[in-house]
């Protein structure tokens, strides 16, 4: 992957790579509390069947996982372990935060022992709200993550940048927008793809608040 390391990759090849990446995701399931059972239902049960989306549950170790699904309450005692497991995962890696507890503390917002949101420990790409979310909601979160991966500038990810979309990179290269996503001139001709949000926020399933 010499091209990727240099930070340059032809766009068609990127699209091909992205597509294959998004349909062969190994998910490391991080069942911590109640949500773990709903996650188990989504991953392990014949009714929901996550494998039809090209997601492979149950890797042997975080070292061969592409994304992690943190489901459940993260306590202050568990937090170092969560961080360490995240660091063991290879790049590029993504995280889904499942359930209110992992999103923001949920019903334990005033507890003395609960970490108020796993995003204090690891960067989160998709929030799935609910207490616990239905398995369908988790599946939607996974689909949204796949769409994001398909649209990702892989080279930027390799360089260690935050999430960057392909369109944005192209716009930057064409001198239309600066690195912060601000338009440089009004006379530019944006590519035919719709311009995505220049400041990529995490996705929230359902679009509401993360609680």
């Amino acid at each position: 992957m010499g091209l990727v390391d240099k930070g340059r990759l032809p766009a068609p090849l990127t699209k091909l790579f992205n597509m294959s990446r998004s349909y062969s995701l190994w998910v490391y399931q991080w069942g911590l509390a109640c949500c773990a059972i709903e996650m188990g239902a989504a991953f392990g049960s014949p009714r929901y069947d996550v494998m039809r989306l090209g997601v492979i549950p149950l890797p042997a170790s975080p070292r061969q996982a592409d994304f992690v699904c943190v489901s459940g309450t993260v306590t202050d005692k568990m937090a170092p372990a969560v961080r360490r497991l995240w660091e063991q995962m290879p790049e590029p890696k993504y995280a889904i935060s499942m359930g209110s507890c992992a999103n923001c503390g949920g019903p334990y917002w005033d507890s003395y022992s609960v970490t108020k949101g796993v995003d204090q420990l690891i960067p989160i790409d998709v929030y799935v709200p609910g207490c616990p979310p239905r398995p369908e909601a988790l599946l939607e979160g996974i689909v949204l993550l796949q769409q994001r991966i398909k649209n990702e500038d892989m080279a930027a990810k390799w360089r260690g940048d935050e999430f960057t979309t392909l369109q944005r990179t192209r716009a930057v290269e064409a001198g239309e927008v600066d690195r912060d996503g601000e338009l440089i001139s009004d006379t530019h001709s944006v590519s035919e793809d719709p311009m995505p949000d220049p400041d990529p926020e995490p996705i929230v399933v359902g679009g509401g608040p993360i609680e």
Binding site: W109, S111, Y112
Partner: peptide, 8 residues
């Protein structure tokens, strides 16, 4: 009882 819940 005198232990405060700081979040509150």
């Amino acid at each position: 009882k005198d232990f405060p819940l700081l979040a509150r």
